[in-house]
Amino acid sequence: MAINMRYVVDGSDFTTAGEASTAVKMKLKKLGIAPDIVRRVAIAMYEAEINMVIHAGGGVAEVELESDKIIIKLIDHGKGIADVDLAMREGYSTAPDAVRNLGFGAGMGLPNIKKYSDEMHIDTEVGKGTTVTIIINLQ
């Protein structure tokens, strides 16, 4: 048994970024998932959602909830990540100044996702897009 959720993340609007992770958070609370895990999912997914808006012009968030884990895939068709190791470094950011002025793009997005997830995969190709997969165990 698994529950699937799918959200389109609008890349043109900063103010609505985070709606998908908020919706997922509410569903997990309804399912009685432990508050600690709900919080980790919400933070990791929010960071990834924001990343998609900043760097890739939006995309799709697919969430699959299984009995023992939650798998979150954020799929975009943006410019891709040239150097994943560099991107994973705390404080490293390629966000434009306009975005930084809004308080985003501090270079903590990917490191935070890693910190709050049990597993994280980045599948990326320059010019084609990126899929970030976040896995958080429910136990």
Partner: peptide, 23 residues
Amino acid sequence: EYDPVLELASDPVKAMEIMLQIE
């Protein structure tokens, strides 16, 4: 204390079943 009135069921498997029905 936490008052989990929003939970669909106290048993997570049952809660998942209900959520699938809701969908």
